[in-house]
């Protein structure tokens, strides 16, 4: 009996003293944190991908709370809906941003771009890139070793083993930008998703002169300037022997796609053409000739 009482008493006293110490320590070292940070964090997708430029979702929430306006702060994973929620919590205004998607700008499949060497090192783009220009004659194109695939947290980009080129799954891609940073050849770009996911872009990064790039790959941009001339909206510029379509100016008229002699400009998700069947045929014949 006595034993139990002593045990209870000692434990009780230890507990009480610890509680008091803990209480004062907690008071002394208390750090005030804006409760809105927790609320904002809860509204975020919790992917912790770093696509916003901050370390994790909490870092982003912290930045949102501290910032005066939400300009320049955007969660690419959550998109406009999430930003609207965040703005609601904070009583600020969120500017709607057009959704973007990752686009791989290389069309050099095995058919178009013959392999001249065989790479036998670690399957890692960065290592191969530091070593040499690639298995093909094109020193700008995709190495196909899948650094982008490894970097993607969302399983949205995968190297197709037949074409040896990465393919983006639009539904899964959150345009966090991890693959953009991972690609040593700087092939991946975040472009506007476009209405009904319709997009037109130059599927090449080759800055060599036309005759050199053509030699190594059938579908390279040869900087023939035709697209620049045909574009009615001045959306295409050519720098360093390479055409680039500015997605904020492009109205998706597809004139450049038709005129490109090497099929380096590609269109995505457009309905099949009806009228220009004939002209397409002649173009193909010309190419064959």
């Amino acid at each position: 009996m006595n034993l139990i009482v002593i045990a209870l008493l000692t434990l009780g006293i230890i507990g009480a003293v610890s509680a008091i110490i803990l209480y004062f320590v907690a008071k002394k070292f208390h750090v005030y944190e804006d409760p809105r940070i927790d609320q904002v964090e809860a509204a975020l997708p919790a992917a912790n991908c770093g696509g916003c430029g901050f370390p994790g979702c909490r870092g982003f929430a912290n930045a949102c709370v501290k910032a005066d306006t939400l300009d320049g702060l955007f969660c690419p994973v959550g998109g406009n809906d999430t930003m609207k929620n965040v703005a609601g919590i904070l009583g600020k205004n969120a500017v709607a941003v057009a959704p973007t998607v990752a686009v791989v700008r290389c069309g050099g499949t095995c058919d178009h771009r013959p392999r001249m060497n065989e790479y036998d090192g670690v399957k890692h783009c960065f290592i191969a890139h530091n070593l040499y220009s690639g298995e093909t004659g094109c020193s700008w194109g995709c190495l196909g070793l899948g650094d982008c695939e490894v970097s993607c947290e969302f399983d949205a980009i995968k190297v197709n083993q037949v074409t040896k080129l990465p393919e983006v799954d639009e539904d899964k891609c959150t345009s966090c930008g991890a693959c953009v940073k991972a690609c040593p050849k700087l092939l991946i770009e975040l472009r506007k998703k476009g209405p009904k996911s319709r997009r037109i872009y130059v599927n090449c990064r080759n800055e060599d002169k036309g005759h050199i790039s053509r030699k190594s790959c059938d579908v390279s941009c040869i900087s023939c300037l035709k697209c620049e001339k045909v574009c009615p909206y001045e959306a295409i510029t050519i720098t360093n022997n390479l055409a680039f379509i500015h997605d904020d100016k492009c109205k998706l008229c597809r004139k450049c796609v038709d005129i490109c002699p090497t099929n380096a400009i590609v269109e995505l998700n457009f309905p099949p053409r009806k009228v220009k069947e004939e002209s397409m045929n002649t173009k193909e014949e010309q190419l064959v000739g």
């Binding site: 090192g121 670690v122 890692h124 960065f126 290592i127 530091n130």
Partner: peptide, 12 residues
């Protein structure tokens, strides 16, 4: 194991 490949990558 490709030790040097990875070390060179890290060094860069």
């Amino acid at each position: 194991r490709p030790l040097l490949d990875y070390i060179r990558f890290g060094k860069t």
